[in-house]
Design a binder for these strands. Sequence first.
DNA 1: AAATTTGTCTATTTACATTTC
DNA 2: GGAAATGTAAATAGACAAATT
Lengths: 486, 486
Amino acid sequence: MIIRYILKNNLSYNCTITLFARKKSMSLISFDHLPLTWKPNIITNHKPFYIALAEQLELDIKNGRLLPGTILPPQRELAYFLDVNVSTISRAFKICTKKGLICGTIGSGTVVSYDSLTNLSLIPKQTNFPLIEMGSMIPEENTYDEITQVIKEMLKETDFGKLFGYGTFMATHWQKEAAVKFLTHMGCPSTKDSIVPAQGGQNAIVAILSGLFKSGDKIGTDPLTYPGLKSAAHMLGIQLVPIRHIDNEMSEEALIQACENENIKGIYIIPEYQNPTTHLMSEQCKKMIARVAKERDIIVIEDGIHSLLNETPRSTVAMYAPEQTCYIASLSKIVSPGLRLAYIVTPLRYKNAIANALYNLNITISPFLLELASRMIASGKALKLAQERRHLAMKCNEIVNTILVDFDVRGENSSTFRWLILPETLDAKYIEEKAFNLGVQVYSSERFTVGTTKPISAIRLAITASSSLENLEKGLIILRDLLHKT
Amino acid sequence: MIIRYILKNNLSYNCTITLFARKKSMSLISFDHLPLTWKPNIITNHKPFYIALAEQLELDIKNGRLLPGTILPPQRELAYFLDVNVSTISRAFKICTKKGLICGTIGSGTVVSYDSLTNLSLIPKQTNFPLIEMGSMIPEENTYDEITQVIKEMLKETDFGKLFGYGTFMATHWQKEAAVKFLTHMGCPSTKDSIVPAQGGQNAIVAILSGLFKSGDKIGTDPLTYPGLKSAAHMLGIQLVPIRHIDNEMSEEALIQACENENIKGIYIIPEYQNPTTHLMSEQCKKMIARVAKERDIIVIEDGIHSLLNETPRSTVAMYAPEQTCYIASLSKIVSPGLRLAYIVTPLRYKNAIANALYNLNITISPFLLELASRMIASGKALKLAQERRHLAMKCNEIVNTILVDFDVRGENSSTFRWLILPETLDAKYIEEKAFNLGVQVYSSERFTVGTTKPISAIRLAITASSSLENLEKGLIILRDLLHKT
DNA sequence: AAATTTGTCTATTTACATTTC
DNA sequence: GGAAATGTAAATAGACAAATT
């Protein structure tokens, strides 16, 4: 049996003793000296072997027996060790790959994901001690007087009550006009026909993913990206593939490689104020992505979530490759988080699929909120709120720059969050935990990691999330002292 | 080879000639006389065979070459005909099963689904001629003065603007109290801890499905059910299994069988005013479902979408099996469709999973709409609207009963829709088409069918959807005349 | 640059379970 | 009630392709 294996697979181990030891039936020989990084002990319990193996793998990862970054034994070695076929191992690994626990590359092996231990969802934790929130990107407390004002005006009109009927599924003409206007400020060209409204940015992402992709499809992303995309993709069985960066941007070579080898069907990007790195994508990179997308006919999901932090509109990939790009323009972050509204700009060929997905998810959106948003935009109040948001960010950033002057904190002064690079010796996750215990919530790089890219040690600071500038200052000082001490 | 096949499988065809003809290599012999119901012509085009086969099957169904109800040849016969292994056929069939195109039963064979040709989504069609809407269950045009009134009151308060901030993710205490009160009127026991708000009933369904089930899981349903469930399940790769009825209700035997053989993880039911049959579930059946659910530990998704059409609350499965049941209480149909709000009552053990799923889908819901809904409920205005809705239904039903007196039209007089049973000789889908051409939109039974249950010929009439009683009358007369004529 | 390592995919073998007759 | 018909699932065999050495 061993001989057969060697002959058939042209194996050339030079240690025959080891080879002999691999045969399970020779149970007297101990396996202890074998160099396998993982030696699962499978008790099938009448379960199919591949399922039992997958469960054991998951357990061992969750228990910390297998740490992120661990390279698992080659499937063939495991197969031999466990006396089953390679395909059986492969099948078990595939289950865990779909769960985002591991990630395999031909030639290099299978690695335990770096985010396998972080909780995917970023639901703000309930604590029984006061917490300075710099984790979730919840905009500051605000009274939103402009919105109140607009609602008051709306109430004067006789048709007001009708806004609680079903409304037109796809928005009225004038509402779409308002959307087009809004999108112009984000640098995204659009027409009334290309716009579909969704219940917020996350809802838009889920709709695009579920409408244009199917379970098993792959989407390229930055090596660190928005966790909401990760959870949505995970929910739909869509796999994310990190595209290697050069100078903080996707490298053309890596992108093309992902198209050819991984067969990705789309990419997700946040060109302005990338989450979490705060990076602003260069003109050149936008054009490169547009070109590659056109050449390979892949779908670009361009998330303009922070685009209005730019005072004047910058270019978009949607501009350069309108037939490839689904652009998401959310109002939540910029105008008001309670508005739960986002516009999707889609090429005509994808419109039906996206509209259908939205119908499956929500049936329809609130006509009241849609009308409210449209009026906020038409009246210019939406942009005014964006302006205020920028001003607040500036103020917060002054504080950040002062307190964290000794550190490498990436991000423009107009950014509502910053990216604090830690010395390589410091484990970001450890700092997140320590900070939490000191009453400051921040999120470490692991939470944003895609696949098996080992994230640099860094922390995202949502600087406009805390309830006051005083709190921000307090939180930053706690963080600074923690870093100096550690 | 043939001999081997016969020996191995103990086949006992008594016509050797036929058997000989099955061998592909004997290409001179024609296959024309073979009794296969489907003879695919597979051109692989470098695609894997199983994928090519699945695509061909889908094409042939969509093209009408394979009609709903057609029994496909046994997998073994097809395998023989195409000279491949049974498993290859099986794999191809599985792809189409997941798409809802076919449905296989061990022992009985594989059948083309009856809803394989109907468009899953019920997005109201755009027409350039006036259409009397009796298809989509869109509530009538209404001015919703009560809502306007409540918003006016809300505006007077100083904190109003804060309702456009992020709000508390899971609703405030008093909002939950309002929800509990609302749920009491629906007969569903709840506590503040067991309630999670979603953006409307459909959103709630998607959240429960994606939070508690995974791709490949099976859920039992009525043989005819709400199409929104079908599309949501389809989107998530969840398979629906029809549970056979006896006297218009799920039969205990069939339910237990589905648990044991199909391994269903849950069931979806609409006990009050079942969509589309209008059936009110008996006390006995509710108790039976609760008992079986407890015994087998399956999840009951109880959709109370029409429960408030009952003047006084009836019992719920949630009452009898609170640890098994996720109850959905939507405000859209009863209070106002523009409100986009539903409450999910969940057993504690499922709460986290559902909350997480909702976070993945929407991040959060509009605090403004949540507050508005809570006040509508607390002030008793919500129930008043439900009352109005019942009254309107009564008025509409009088008209229905008068005009369609010659027909078998199921449903209480308080129902907002009715179920028109057609003579077996009439094809419901044909009537739907004809009616549409005459300017009346109705939905035929095929749209509600799950799997391969051949639906009875029937049509759902959404009687409160048309814009006026006159229109309803006009539409019904057109329909009556059409039926008399055909 | 060639050989080796390594993950992945398709198709097959085999066993199994349920329904029908 | 037992045999046949029928779909399904697990594990295997073998080929393939990318990455590493």
